[in-house]
């Protein structure tokens, strides 16, 4: 479904991602792991078209590497960005409403908002409250819900557990597990490798802008020494 070929990302003249390749099959959950500054978010941004990059990004048999960000979203790519970035002065309901911006089926979208309110009663309770007043975990749930309101073909999750308490992190991963079970294609970017490896069907390890290893959970865990130094996974 998503084929990234020979992708490099530049900030000005500085190259931060070096010619990487990876593939995400429909219905699978792929994780992109690595330490801070490895180029994970830059990779996500290049899929979204918010940074300068070279190489091709093929999504649903279409090369999207030259088209505008907004058009890529319309093709069915959704993002729950790092740091959550809820619209803090907008109400919870309005956040979800904006999330369905590209939808044509207004009524169905409205029903989905109700469904989300059933999944997260706390969001329903606070639906007219501004999103900035939610706790970090609630904001993360809102961000994921907002991204799914666009009815995406693929969901990009950038560091969903960042800065959350362990209990909340657990809930977030449970949610991702559920989404996966529903058959939603997911690209998960994480520093919390233990959890991410459990979830993902296939993983890529990124360091200094290069893919240094890839495989399923067992294959990655075999390369134990490399792994523990990079991501802190215990054997």
């Amino acid at each position: 479904m998503l084929f990234v070929n020979n992708l490099s990302v530049f900030y000005g003249k500085i190259k931060v991602v070096h010619n990487i390749n990876f593939t995400i099959e429909e219905g699978s959950c792929v994780s992109l792991l690595g330490p801070n500054g490895a180029g994970k978010t830059s990779t996500i941004s290049s899929i979204l078209g918010t940074v300068n990059s070279t190489g091709t990004i093929n999504f649903c048999n279409e090369d999207i590497s030259k088209i505008q960000t907004e058009e890529r979203i319309k093709l069915g790519i959704s993002i729950a960005p790092e740091g959550r970035r809820v619209f803090s002065n907008l109400s919870v309901y309005e956040n979800l409403y904006i999330g369905s911006a590209i939808r044509k089926d207004r009524e169905k979208a409205d029903r989905e908002i109700e469904e989300w309110f059933n999944v997260f009663p706390i969001l329903h309770e606070r639906k007219d409250q501004s999103a900035g007043t939610l706790s970090g975990g609630e904001q993360q749930m809102l961000t994921i819900a907002r991204a799914l309101m666009g009815n995406p073909k693929i969901l990009l999750l950038d560091e969903p557990s960042l800065g959350l308490a362990p209990m909340i992190t657990k809930k977030v991963f449970e949610l991702i597990e559920k989404l996966k079970a529903k058959g939603i294609t997911i690209l998960l970017v994480e520093q919390n490798a233990t959890e991410a490896l459990k979830l993902a069907d296939y993983s890529y390890i990124l360091n200094s802008g290069k893919i240094i290893a890839h495989g399923d959970r067992n294959e990655i865990l075999k390369k134990g020494d490399l792994m523990s130094s990079l991501t802190g996974v215990e054997n």
Binding site: T50, T69, I73, I79, P81, F87, N89, L90, E94, I102
Partner: peptide
């Protein structure tokens, strides 16, 4: 209103 808070995020909503 969303754009006045985070313009890029609005673009990321399509």
């Amino acid at each position: 209103r969303a754009a006045s808070l985070d313009f890029e995020m609005v673009r990321l909503m399509g």
